[in-house]
């Protein structure tokens, strides 16, 4: 796939319809990735996605918000807007950042309960399973746990 096209798809990513459900977004991502013939295109796309990640504000990039993987650092922050959770994040490694961008695209702007009910199997389907393996020392597994923890916390807050 030409780089330009990758760029266009990337630009459109975060202008998605806010009413979309997690499952729909995940299927949309699977569709996008199915256009690529090999791992290199997938990685190039992911790297582009990483560059367009909704970045966490510098003030939230604190040690408290850091999720320490063995090798790459991951920061994540959550805010509740209209009973939906909005995530921002960052990482010092670009491929990690790309996966975060994909995860956040699926989980951001969603109700906490929906985030809790959702799975991450679509990562497997787009051929990036190895990055979410618990043995991969990149902080992503802990990040997903953290996203879910935020969802639990805010769900409790909403119920109260």
């Amino acid at each position: 796939m030409p780089k330009l096209l990758i760029g266009i798809i990337t630009c459109c990513n975060f202008v998605q319809n806010k009413a979309m459900e997690i499952k729909e977004i995940q299927e949309e991502i699977i569709d996008e990735f199915s256009m690529f013939d090999d791992w290199m295109q997938r990685y190039e796309y992911m790297i582009e996605l990483g560059k367009s990640l909704p970045l966490i504000k510098e003030e939230f990039k604190t040690d408290d918000n850091i999720i320490k993987g063995c090798q790459s650092k991951v920061w994540v922050h959550a805010e509740l807007e209209d009973n939906k959770l909005v995530f921002t994040a960052d990482s010092d490694a670009i491929i990690t950042k790309g996966i975060i961008a994909i995860l956040i695209r699926a989980f951001s702007n969603q109700k906490p309960q929906d985030i809790l009910d959702a799975d991450t199997e679509f990562i497997d389907e787009i051929g990036l399973k190895e990055h979410l393996s618990p043995t991969r020392a990149n902080g992503l597994v802990s990040m997903i746990k953290q996203l879910k923890l935020y969802a639990v916390a805010y769900q409790t807050q909403i119920e109260e």
Partner: peptide
């Protein structure tokens, strides 16, 4: 970042240590 380099080298069949 060394992690990114290692991930791509792995895809090319090259085993190095990163970190």
């Amino acid at each position: 970042h060394p992690y990114d380099m290692g991930s791509i080298l792995d895809k090319l069949g090259i085993a190095v240590r990163t970190g």
